[in-house]
């Protein structure tokens, strides 16, 4: 559905994207995560042809993003925290305005989404709160059942209640849609995303399915029979290694249940107990971000 190849974007001297490549399979919910300024919004702006790449290619629905025409745009939904809609129109007036541009617009779905998101149709867009505007953007993106939905920081600044309403509205209508969602609110992506890409300073550190990611990351606590000392050479898959008393903790990034115990013993010596716990997406993200920052500092 989306293929990005060696994408570069420069804003004068600042290089926002540095040779980014990834793909989003059809039917997946791809989460692009990264800290603020990592380049998430830039990618989505390029995908929607709001920005032009400096070099490289981004294809959506089989078309170069620079050549998106109304034929492709009727199949793309877009929700962003920074989306300017005509402030002096009411919710209903703007929906009425957009409807004729989309041949597949489903009025029943529009009414259902409007009810579900609890948006006041008679209120002017300029008078809506931040959260309501995001819901408004979702209302304007769902009724035509887009094949591809691009969500740029959709949870930013939302209170939990609105966030739940937003997610409910989204998930109910998700159906066969392919979703690309950018966020640093990792708690919200957990349970939604099927695939994930981790972005740091304009580079994609990895891309894989959530199942694989959850499978290979473990928070490990090893209790040794002796005073712990870090091994002379820390395996590259171990991140954030710390030793205190006879306890060593680290994050294993290539967890393999069958070989893990033996590998730990070979590196740390006599072991009394090994405790490995699956990690939340937030913990994985934090660990990777710290490791990236440390390696950059080194």
């Amino acid at each position: 559905m989306i293929q990005v190849q060696d994408l570069h974007k420069k804003f004068r001297r600042f290089e926002a994207l540095r040779g980014l490549s990834f793909s989003v399979p059809q039917g997946s919910a791809f989460a692009l995560i990264g800290a603020n300024g990592a380049g998430k919004t830039t990618i989505i702006k390029i995908l929607t042809n709001i920005l032009e790449p400096t070099s490289g290619r981004a294809n959506l629905l089989g078309v170069d993003s620079r050549k998106l025409s109304p034929r492709e745009l009727v199949q793309i939904g877009y929700v962003s925290e920074n989306q300017d809609m005509p402030a002096r129109l009411t919710v209903a007036e703007y929906v009425d305005y957009l409807r004729p541009f989309y041949p597949s617009w489903d009025r029943d779905l529009e009414r259902e989404t409007l009810r579900q998101l609890r948006l006041p149709p008679e209120r002017k867009i300029g008078d809506l709160s931040h959260g309501m505007r995001l819901k408004m953007a979702l209302l304007c993106a769902l009724p035509y059942r887009p094949k591809l939905l691009l969500l740029d920081e959709p949870f930013s600044g939302l209170d939990p209640l609105v966030r739940d309403e937003f997610m409910e509205g989204l998930l109910k209508q998700a159906g066969e849609m392919t979703i690309l969602i950018s966020s640093h609110e990792l708690g919200e992506i957990d349970g939604v995303a099927t695939d994930i890409g981790f972005l740091d300073e304009g580079k994609l550190l990895f891309q894989e399915s959530m199942a694989e990611l959850n499978g290979r990351f473990r928070e490990v606590r090893v209790t040794l029979a002796h005073e712990a000392a870090p091994p002379a050479q820390v395996p590259k898959d171990w991140l954030g290694l710390q030793a205190m008393g006879n306890v060593v903790t680290f994050v294993e990034t290539s967890f393999d249940e069958k070989r893990f115990g033996e590998f730990v013993r070979s590196r740390l010596g006599e072991v009394r107990a090994i405790n490995s716990q699956p990690m939340s997406l937030r913990s994985i993200f934090t660990t990777l971000a710290r490791a990236a920052r440390d390696s950059a500092a080194a």
Partner: peptide, 18 residues
């Protein structure tokens, strides 16, 4: 400027408006 061309935030840019 009701539908400004330069800029990154205008909603109309991602609409199938010929």
């Amino acid at each position: 400027l009701l539908d400004a061309i330069p800029g990154l935030r205008q909603d109309w840019l991602i609409r199938p408006i010929p």
